[in-house]
Each structure stands twice: as structure tokens, then as C-alpha cells.
């Protein structure tokens, strides 16, 4: 489980309470009181019901000593896991668009940094604002042998050209999202959702294939040690070969490397695209530039428009 500072845990809990609409109060720097709704499972003749409970939460062992009876919420604690579990019901699908509200000067300044060769063409003609559909998908990858190591993968798939951008959510940290589809013209997707997931799965396979193989090699070494040990026991009696084989298969099951891929959530996003049509000059024909400001990406430089 990720190491988190007490401040980070507290921030996470507060954010969770806000998203779930639960009321809370910071009594002081240490103590957080929250009123949450808890599902009480059915017991004997009483049906399942929802009940309000007040939680008194602190985030450091020192504060726990000062507030007897308050729950200490730290990484791995029951209460933090309870919040984490509860969140599995939320945020599974989202539909968002990202408005673009920068001035032309700000835009050109950013473009100039990205493509200095464009600077001589400034000021550029007024661009056309469009939206490009992206599929943002999060997966957890569990690298499992006799050990377990997990990572979270954030992939943004450009539905127009199929390009996949890793760590996609991070690129959108500062951006302002608005619910629903974009009001502007949306570029025509080049891929269906089925095709998009095929591309994402292929990307994950590639990712695993190119990952540092130590986790596999170490497990294989351990497996072979175990197998050699097992063989020592059975080597003298060929009659037991079936039993040996069965134990060996169990060992293989224990150590064989598997990557379990679990989907966390899916977002359909419309990201702004500024489409510039640059006039033809004596050195180049008419050019169409597509600038995706949130991704810091320019397409079409050097290419000619039809």
C-alpha cells in the first residue's frame, strides 16, 4: 500500500466526504468529525438498513493519544480501507469536456514554445475550436508470482488517430473539466469503442513485455530451487513420479508469472483542439495545424493540407 503522509490521508478523507455529500467538521487541526451513512447488513429478522454514524477521526498516533476514542486513520487502517472500499461504487464512468478559454496571445506564446519554427508566422489566423474524443481508461496491473506487486496505469486513447498517451490523467491535473459532451464540433472518431479496447489491451501487452523482467526471473529462480528440492525427495522412487508431477505442477501454479488486469474506470473526454489553417507561401503549400493545448501537442507541422 502506498505510503502517505497524515496530511495526504486527511486530504483524501475530506475529498471523499465532499464527493459523497457527507457532512463533516474540522473540530481543530487534529480532529475531524464526520457523519456518514453506513449500510447495516440484515440480521435475523431485521432487514438491511442504512444508518447514520458519526466518526471521530484523527490522523497521527500523537493525536490519537490526545483524543481517546477517536479512530486513527493511517495507511492500512480499517477506516481508510472502508473509505477506499466505499469509493468502488463511485466514479466508474464519466463524460467530461474541457473548455478552452485562453487569449490568442497566451495561445501563441504556448505554441511558440512548442514549435519555435512557427514563430515567424505569428500572428496566426484565428483558429477553429473543435473537440477531440478521448477514451481515458485506468487499469490496475497485478504482477503476481508467489509475490504480488501492483501498479496503476492511466491510458488516454485518441479516438481519432488511435494514439495512446500514458499517464494521461496527470496531463489533465490543472485543467477544468465540465460535465457532458462538448458544445463545439467534435472530430469524427476513427475507432469504435470495441476497437479502442483492443488497442488498449495490445498496448498493455506491450507494456508488460517491455517491463523489467526481474520479477519474472526471480520467481523462476525460486521456482527452480523448489523444484530441485522436490526432485531430491522423489528421485529414488520412480513409482512416486505421478505424485512428484502433481506437486511440481502445484509449484508451477505458485510461481508462474501472471499479470492480472483489472479495469478501474472509464472516462469519455472531449479535449479542445485549435485548428489553424495557414495560408500557402512560396516555400510551402496551405497547411492545417491542430493544436491540443491540454496535451501540449501539435499535429500537422510540415504536412500539407489536401
Amino acid at each position: 500500500m502506498a505510503a502517505l503522509s497524515p496530511e495526504e490521508v486527511k486530504a483524501f478523507i475530506i475529498e471523499t466526504l465532499e464527493v459523497s455529500g457527507a457532512s463533516y467538521r474540522l473540530v481543530d487541526e487534529a480532529l475531524l468529525m464526520a457523519e456518514v451513512t453506513v449500510e447495516i447488513p440484515p440480521m435475523f429478522f431485521a432487514p438491511a438498513r442504512l444508518e447514520k454514524q458519526t466518526l471521530n477521526l484523527v490522523f497521527t498516533p500523537e493525536d490519537s493519544a490526545n483524543y481517546p476514542g477517536a479512530e486513527l486513520v493511517i495507511p492500512g487502517s480499517y477506516r481508510l480501507n472502508w473509505f477506499l472500499d466505499g469509493l468502488k461504487e463511485r466514479g466508474n464512468y464519466t463524460l467530461q469536456h474541457f473548455p478552452y478559454e485562453r487569449t490568442p496571445a497566451e495561445t501563441e506564446a504556448a505554441l511558440g514554445v512548442l514549435c519555435p519554427e512557427l514563430k515567424p508566422l505569428f500572428p496566426l489566423p484565428t483558429p477553429k475550436l473543435q473537440a477531440r474524443p478521448f477514451l481515458l481508461v485506468h487499469y490496475t496491473l497485478s504482477y503476481q508470482t508467489d509475490e504480488l506487486h501492483e501498479e496503476l496505469v492511466s491510458l488516454g486513447l485518441d479516438m481519432v488517430n488511435g494514439a495512446i498517451t500514458p499517464d494521461f490523467l496527470h496531463l489533465l491535473t490543472e485543467a477544468e473539466a465540465r460535465p457532458g459532451a462538448a458544445g463545439t464540433a467534435v472530430e469524427t472518431p476513427g475507432y469504435s469503442l470495441e476497437e479502442a479496447f483492443t488497442l488498449l489491451h495490445r498496448h498493455l501487452e506491450q507494456l508488460v513485455a517491455t517491463k523489467d523482467r526481474r520479477w519474472v526471473d526471480d520467481a523462476r529462480t525460486r521456482y527452480e530451487e523448489e523444484l530441485t528440492c522436490l526432485y531430491q525427495y522423489y528421485q529414488e522412487d520412480q513409482r512416486d513420479f505421478t505424485v512428484f508431477r502433481s506437486h511440481a505442477l502445484d509449484l508451477y501454479d505458485k510461481f508462474r508469472p501472471r499479470v492480472l488486469v483489472r479495469l478501474v474506470n472509464v472516462g469519455l473526454l472531449s479535449l479542445p483542439v485549435l485548428v489553424y489553417t495557414l495560408p500557402a507561401t512560396n516555400r510551402r503549400s496551405k497547411t492545417v495545424l491542430r493544436y491540443l493545448p491540454l496535451l501540449g501537442k501539435v499535429e500537422g507541422t510540415g504536412s500539407s493540407a489536401p
Binding site: 502506498a2 483524501f12 466508474n92 464519466t94 497485478s142 501492483e150 496503476l152 478501474v264 472516462g267
Partner: peptide
């Protein structure tokens, strides 16, 4: 089309991140 908010979406990712087993 049962969409949730952007904040919930991001929080869900954060929760998944916090629940990861890292050896």
C-alpha cells in the same frame, strides 16, 4: 450513460492507487 462527476472519477483513481500492493 450513468455518468459520475469528474471529482468522483479522479477520487476513484486515487483510491485505486492507495489500495495498490507494492510488495
Amino acid at each position: 450513460q450513468e455518468w459520475d462527476s469528474w471529482a468522483a472519477f479522479r477520487l476513484r483513481v486515487r483510491a485505486a492507487e492507495l489500495a495498490l500492493f507494492t510488495g
